[in-house]
Write a protein that binds this DNA or RNA. Structure first.
Length: 121
DNA sequence: GTTTTGACATTGA
DNA sequence: GTCAATGCCAAAA
């Protein structure tokens, strides 16, 4: 098990980031979760932005970073068009449907909202 | 120490 | 439905 990419002096921060990674790892393929949901699951509901920061630092850290989107289902990457396109491609490969250029259909692919799986088809 | 920045969320127009 | 303003909170400058 490799260490985190950054050298943290604060163990709390490291624990929180690891918590984020752990939660994100449980997102099944073909589903997406929002930054806010993950922050909420980590008992830090106000720290959605940190989730994005954690993913940014983790880069390709064995976590399905592409399955995390904003509350409205949009891909959130204003400063990195390359990663933005890569995320869209990865999601499409998992069968996720886009309702706009960079917005997924949350109605059908949101991890939490689709838990009951009431067979909407 | 203060200010700016950021892979966010919510509200209101 | 979209978009801007606001609130948020930690990290980086």
């Amino acid at each position: 098990m490799k260490d985190l990419p950054l050298t943290y002096s604060d163990t709390e921060k490291e624990a929180l980031f690891e918590k984020f990674y752990q939660i994100i790892r449980t997102i099944p393929s073909g589903k997406v979760a929002t930054y806010g949901q993950i922050a909420q699951m980590a008992n830090s509901p106000k720290e959605a932005r940190l989730v994005g920061q954690a993913l940014s630092l983790s880069k390709s850290h064995e976590v399905p970073w592409h399955r995390v989107v904003t509350a409205s289902g949009k891909i959130a990457m204003p400063t990195r068009p390359e990663l933005r396109d890569r995320q869209k491609q990865l999601l499409r490969e998992e069968g996720i449907e886009f309702i706009a250029d960079y917005q997924v259909n949350m109605q059908r692919f949101d991890w939490q909202a689709t838990q009951p799986q009431l067979d909407l088809f």
